[in-house]
């Protein structure tokens, strides 16, 4: 569906060259909800803007359905953009137009006849559950309602892809949930491919099936959400995982006087197998679970436990080896 190959983007800022994107390679399949997570300034917004050429990449390819968007002329690019919906952090609705007129805009520029426009507007209002706000103006709507209008507007021309640029970052947690549910519904109902830019781990956890983690203009990790977050390799990814809530500051363990602490990450079958109890039976050690939890990431179980292991040093070593053999990631927390 979307392939980004060797993409670079450089900005010139007062003579300095800022490298916003460095050798980005991603593949997004049809029907994916692809999350791109990173801290602000990581380059994720620039990356998503290169997909519809709101930003001109310095080097590289962006293929959409096999067509390199860099080869398109101005009018071909406009036609392509009509098939790529986009929603924004600050909604960017036309203030001078009512809800219905806002949704009408993309239809007008696609020269859809008036009767068809009316019909399509009603369909879309129903999809985003805003039938009663048809004639309201954006200033009369809440943030969540504005984003629903944004989504309806983005879907008007039956796009193949929906790009979401921090679409929930200006919303409160409850509204975020309802918008994410709506995106999921659209993805399932229309088979729409969705690309989501966010700095919120919750968003990725809730609806994405694939994720790319960005830092300093590079993708440091990517793949299925459950894989990436069950076995985070990079510091930044680990930080995002901590944000899901199954962690407490390591300093606290120090204060509590524990000796041998191990952080266990497991996923899928690992999460449903009683590996810990097998380990205790097999080796002469005790395991004291201090902290942890199991999460659902895209129908996949992902667990994260912090365990104190008590026993002889060599037994503990063997036990850790046993865990690793069973596809549990172990990290000894040095105190």
């Amino acid at each position: 569906m979307i392939e980004v190959k060797g993409l670079y983007k450089e900005f010139r800022d007062k003579g300095n060259i800022v490298k916003a994107l460095k050798n980005i390679n991603i593949t997004i399949e049809k029907g994916d909800i692809f999350g791109i997570i990173g801290l602000s300034g990581a380059g994720k917004s620039t990356l998503v803007r290169c997909i519809n050429r709101l930003e001109e990449p310095t080097k590289g390819k962006v293929l959409i359905k096999g067509q390199d968007v860099m080869d398109l002329n101005a009018s071909q690019l406009r036609e392509l953009r009509k098939k790529i919906g986009m929603i924004f952090q600050h909604f960017n609705l036309l203030n001078s137009r009512s809800v219905a007129e806002n949704i009408s805009y993309p239809l007008e520029i696609s020269k859809v006849p008036k009767e068809e426009r009316e019909k399509r507007i009603d369909e879309l209002l129903k999809l985003v559950e805003l039938e009663d706000k048809k004639n309201s103006y954006p200033s009369q709507l809440s943030g969540g309602q504005k984003q629903r209008v944004g989504i309806a507007r983005a879907l008007a021309n039956h796009p193949d892809v929906l790009l979401c640029d921090e679409a929930t970052s200006a919303l409160d947690p409850k509204t975020t949930q309802s918008i994410l549910k709506l995106l999921k519904k659209i993805n399932e109902k229309l088979g729409l491919t969705i690309v989501i830019i966010t700095h919120e781990m919750e968003v990725i956890k809730q609806i994405c099936n694939k994720v790319a983690v960005m830092e300093n203009g590079e993708i440091v990790e990517s793949g299925m959400v459950s894989k990436v977050f069950a076995h985070p390799k990079n510091e930044i990814t680990k930080n995002f995982v901590k944000n899901i809530g199954h962690d407490i500051p390591e300093e606290l363990f120090k204060e509590l006087g524990f000796k041998k602490l191990v952080r266990l990450n497991f996923e899928g079958s690992g999460a449903s197998n009683p590996i810990l109890s097998k380990m205790i039976k097999k080796y002469d050690i005790d395991a004291n679970i201090l902290f942890g939890g199991i999460d659902h990431l895209q129908n996949n179980l992902v667990g994260n436990l912090i365990v104190e292991l008590k026993g002889k040093e060599e037994e503990i070593e063997k036990a850790i080896c046993f865990l690793k053999e069973n596809e549990v990631e172990c990290e000894v927390i040095s105190l």
């Binding site: 036609e79 953009r81 600050h90 960017n92 609705l93 805009y105 993309p106 520029i109």
Partner: peptide, 21 residues
Amino acid sequence: DKGIIEAAIAMGSTPWEIIIK
């Protein structure tokens, strides 16, 4: 708002449509 103009560009508007609409 620059964001509104960006949204119009992202929807595939021509410069003329952006001016008029």
